[in-house]
Amino acid sequence: MSSRVEILNDGGYRSDGRRQYELRDISIDLSPRGTADGSALITHGLTEVMVDVFGPKEAKSRGQSVHDRATVSVEVGIMPFSTGERRKRNRGDKRVLELAASIRQTFEPIIQTSLYPRSEISIFVHILQQDGGLLPASINATTLALLTAGIPLTDYVTAMTCGVHSTTSLLDLTILEENDLPHLTVASLPRTGKVTLVTMETRLHAERVTECLKIAGEAGKILHKEMKKAVEARTQKLAQAMEMAPKVAVVGGGSGGVGDVEMEDEMDT
C-alpha cells in the first residue's frame, strides 16, 4: 500500500494540521426539523450527518410489532452529493445495509424498549457529507436525536475512530487517513466505560488494539461532554419556554382559576 499523502509529518502534524490525538471541530444542532419527534445534525470536521427520529409510534405493520418491547428500525440514506465522485448508492447496497444494521444493533440494547410494547421507533440517518468516520458520526447523531425525541436511554453512546500509523495512534480520521491506515471504530458508553460496538476492517497486530481501545474510549468521554452540553442547552431553552407558558395563562384567565390546578395535575403525572 503506497500512500501519496504524508500521514504524520516530522513535526507531528497530520495532513489537515491536527495533532495526533486532536479531534476535528464538532458542531451540534438540535433544532427541530419538520415533523420528526427528534432530530440532530452533527458535524465532525467535514463529515455531516443528520438524523431524524420518529416514534415511539404504532408499528407500521402488525407483523413487525413485538408484544413486550418496541422495535427499532434504521434506514440510512447516503446522499449522492456527499462524496467527491457523485455516485448513487441504491438502498440494497450491502455497505449501506450493514451501516444501518450496526446502528440498529448498537441502539437496541441502549434504548429502554420495554417501556413501549408493540410500538416502533424509526431512525432515519441522512449522510450529507462524508469525510471519514461515517459510522461514528451516525452513532453520535443518533444518540442526540433519540435524546431530543425524549426516548429514554440507559446511557449516551459515543463513537470514535482510532487509526494506527506505524506505532503511533491517531484519533478521528479523515477519509484520506482512513484509506491508508488500519483503524478501529469504537462506540462506548461513557458512564460505565463499556464498549458496545467495535469494528475493524484492516490488518493490525493484536498488541496495538489495546492502546486503540483505550484512546478511543477517552475520546468518547470528551465527546460525551460536548454532547451533554448541547443537550443541556436545549433543555434549558425548553424549560424557559415552559416557565413562560403558565404566566401567559394567568394573565389571560385571571387569578387562580380551576384551569391552573388541572395544569399542575397534568405536570405531575
Binding site: 463499556k194 458496545t196 460496538l197 469494528t199
Partner: peptide
C-alpha cells in the same frame, strides 16, 4: 497474531478487558 476484522455490532456492552480477553 494479526487481527484482520473485529466485528461487534451492538449487543450487550462489554468492558475493554472482555474484548481483549476474547482476542487473546
Amino acid at each position: 497474531k494479526e487481527l484482520c476484522v473485529i466485528q461487534k455490532a451492538g449487543g450487550v456492552p462489554l468492558s475493554e478487558e472482555q474484548v481483549l480477553a476474547a482476542i487473546d
